[in-house]
């Protein structure tokens, strides 16, 4: 009887014990659960942002008034303040705030730079997922190549963010002051993109470690490239968060 049922139990349903109900290793499950938890951290920040945002009147649609954009920082801000596009009373329209592009000073290019950042992140996600796929095939060389591209993408994104922050700060935005509108706009921008940037940074660090291990053949010896998958999950999560940051900070 005993041997009989032990044989039956082990092959029975998903949840009856003796096996992973999800067919995943515990490490991957842990990563998923951690990401769920981290999603709540980001949610709290974004929801906080939402509450503050809702406590200010919506931006005024003044786009047509801004004709040829002479974007030499302070004059522009003054002009915007003058026509009432920026005031402490209402939330500024994000396309008037983030409308610069490196090497193209003085041209009104709303949304362009941040779209570039988004694409960088999406591409690095793709290379990541390609690395994972290569891992499934136990293709050490390809894993290395794709991981390298992913790291490159991450660094590029961080660089872009640094540039954007620098631009924003040189125009006078700080945690407690914001020439474009309510101080909260700047503070929350720094908080949320900063927290996201911190995640990207840790992701890059993890990627570098995974890259070196892969190069050294650690995973090949181990017999599987699951580590790449786990790091990948984290990396995609960072991308996922960016989708919402992009939507809520730049589009809406």
């Amino acid at each position: 009887m005993s041997t009989d049922s032990s044989a039956t139990v082990s092959t029975t349903r998903t949840w009856s014990g003796g096996r992973s109900p999800f067919d995943v290793s515990y490490g991957k499950l842990m990563m998923w659960i951690f990401l769920l938890s981290d999603a709540f951290t980001f949610s709290s920040l974004l929801v906080g942002y939402g509450a503050v945002r809702f406590s200010y009147p919506a931006p005024e649609p003044l786009v047509e008034k801004i004709a040829p954009m002479s974007h030499v920082s302070h004059e522009f801000v003054d002009e915007m303040q003058h026509i009432g596009a920026f005031s402490e009373k209402h939330w500024p329209s994000p396309d008037l705030v983030f409308n610069h592009f490196p090497f193209l000073h003085g041209i009104h290019l709303p949304l362009m730079f941040v779209s570039l950042m988004t694409f960088i992140l999406i591409f690095s996600s793709v290379t990541m997922v390609l690395a994972v796929e290569a891992g499934h095939r136990m293709d050490k060389k390809k894993v290395g190549v794709y991981m390298f591209y992913t790291i490159l993408g991450g660094l590029a994104f961080l660089g872009c963010q640094a540039w954007e922050w620098t631009q924003f700060i040189t125009e006078g935005a700080t945690l407690s002051h914001n020439p474009f509108g309510p101080a909260h706009f700047a503070a929350l921008f720094f908080m949320v993109t900063g927290f996201h940037g911190f995640h990207v940074f840790s992701g890059v660090v993890l990627n570098v470690i995974a890259y070196i291990s892969a190069k050294n053949g650690v995973y090949e010896k181990r017999g599987h490239y699951e580590m790449i998958e786990k790091v990948g999950l984290y990396w995609h999560f960072v991308d996922l968060v960016w989708v919402f940051v992009f939507t809520f900070f730049y589009l809406i």
Binding site: S37, T41, S176, A187, F195
Partner: peptide, 25 residues
């Protein structure tokens, strides 16, 4: 714990910034 502590973490972060870095959330 897993789902609620992160929200406190978010709240605390904002509080830390209010205390030390001049924000006013």
């Amino acid at each position: 714990g897993l789902l609620s502590f992160p929200v406190l973490l978010g709240g605390s972060l904002l509080l830390i910034f209010d205390r030390s870095f001049g924000t006013s959330f």
